[in-house]
Design a protein around this nucleic acid. Sequence first.
DNA 1: GGAAGCTCTGCTCATATGAGCAGAAATACC
DNA 2: GGTATTTCTGCTCATATGAGCAGAGCTTCC
Lengths: 334, 334
Amino acid sequence: MLLVPARGLSLEGVITDPELLAVRVAELYYDENKTQDEIGGLLKITRWKVGRLLAQAREQGIVRIEIVHPRARRLPVERALRERFGLADAVVIPSGQGEGDLQTRVGQAAADYITALRPVPRTLGISWGRTLSEVADRLEQGWATGVTVVQINGGVSLNRRAGTAATTAAMIAQKANGHATLLPSPAILERVETKEAIESDRTVAGVLELASRASAYLYSAGVANQSSVLVDSGYLTPADVDELVRKGAVGDVVGRYIDANGNIVDPGLDERTVGLGLDQLRNAKVSIFVVAGRAKHDVARAIVTNGLCSVVVTDEATAASLLDLDNEQVERKP
Amino acid sequence: MLLVPARGLSLEGVITDPELLAVRVAELYYDENKTQDEIGGLLKITRWKVGRLLAQAREQGIVRIEIVHPRARRLPVERALRERFGLADAVVIPSGQGEGDLQTRVGQAAADYITALRPVPRTLGISWGRTLSEVADRLEQGWATGVTVVQINGGVSLNRRAGTAATTAAMIAQKANGHATLLPSPAILERVETKEAIESDRTVAGVLELASRASAYLYSAGVANQSSVLVDSGYLTPADVDELVRKGAVGDVVGRYIDANGNIVDPGLDERTVGLGLDQLRNAKVSIFVVAGRAKHDVARAIVTNGLCSVVVTDEATAASLLDLDNEQVERKP
DNA sequence: GGAAGCTCTGCTCATATGAGCAGAAATACC
DNA sequence: GGTATTTCTGCTCATATGAGCAGAGCTTCC
């Protein structure tokens, strides 16, 4: 025993099976940092063949290269989304199992996105909710300077977690040394007349005017079900939501319920909803839609496929759903 | 909407956090196949910095490159084993979860190894057991030509799965167009005298002589517990094994029980065991030890750390155990 | 059996990349 | 506050690598 430790004799020599050969080549290249030339010498093949084998191994997925980091993104998926839906941009983070809450990571991604956004928006129109609040939290102090933040849909004062909406707007503004303009109105009113009256009030009209001229929008969406914040806040009854769902509602954007085709489900209700219209989002140059989680796949699809946003920030599973790459159908059946 | 789809504006511009920067660089390089130069342009840094960031990302494990294949190996671990224990060679396969039985994959690796072994052994001494049988199965027809296979320890005729030992040897030989020489003797005899008598028998002596001059050995090891094949076959009683364990036995190599230091546990018993001695394995130029599975970590350690083999073929978890990289201690405590 | 296609091979050459180095910047230390 | 030491930067240059191509070897189809 105690031979001179050779350099792993087992790897030299001729391998016939081409797949196995690709595996050995990949190991020597990626694990042992050998040059393609050295590998060629070792395995008795030309260095060009080594190169080709390596390319093949990557294509076939024998070599898997993964970027593991809480703030990692999925560039190829982003590109697919941009191309498929004609988006100006897309941000997709891995859905990865344990590593931190999905909502938080998507929030972080959205925060990063608006921080890097050029030109810096002078006025940023935002919705409110759990997701937006997360984005606000994740924004860094001084993420921009002098940005005016304006709410684009009615507030949620009745809510138990009252003030969240206001806090979100205020925090985003404060962290950019700007100031927030709140929309002092309920989200949905009982009568059209009241809605029209409040909209024509100087203060409200001014805010809406400001909102409609914002240089960028940042918003999320709600799911059409009992647990919606709009139910929670008393704007709608559980029965109302059931009715909306029956009519095809998949969720709400800035308080407005849409179906899978991106159309308003209940025009009567919509008439009583205060805030930016869907078309204003649709025609906006920069409208950033932030969405995370399985529950929101349907709304997300309605929004993205119908051009309501120009940028989407989401998780990989949602992106896959948008691209029809998932097998949700299969999963749903049983 | 329907802006001209830009190329992902979100990635351009300045990033301050150096780790995040490394992540973005890695994504552009590995996911988007951009050149370091292009990435530099995009992120406003020099291409050398991109290169350095990339190297750093690999070191820190942000970029993880994995070779996924049933026959993949763990070259860095193999090297560690060679260096640490002065082995001539080592073969380590990933322990990976689902993909096929570990035993089978280690068997395959051992089969690959002896197939590629140069110079081709004229005589190959083998032990028998579940592991060796697996190796025999995995060998390809024509893996070598004209190899004489010889058993190096007593057979297992009493066994219910009688003939396994013989079949293993025969199959390995047949697949190399060679022939097998069996050791026609029990593994352990009741009296020393009988053992000496049988060893001096012309036939047996001839086989042992042949075995001791084999150009390579291939063997596995057993665990010292009730389920040992030696108990199964009736050579030892469960009580015998308990006693051996009490004396420090961790397992058996070619029928001989050793402790953690690689020493014979019970010289009396050893005297009655027919087959190659431990020193002959230790001094052999090529002695290949094949071992797989959690249960055998202790025997494996006894064999490898005490120089009983010159080559080890095993799974990653066992290798980690040999290198003290595991936290078995922690796991065992509770 | 032979031509037409196909894949596979080894090559040239342009490009991408890493090692190594000297100066710049940042940090630690007196 | 200044100097020593470390880390970081942008560079030159040698090397490693991929694209593209022409010929070899293979299959396929009449």
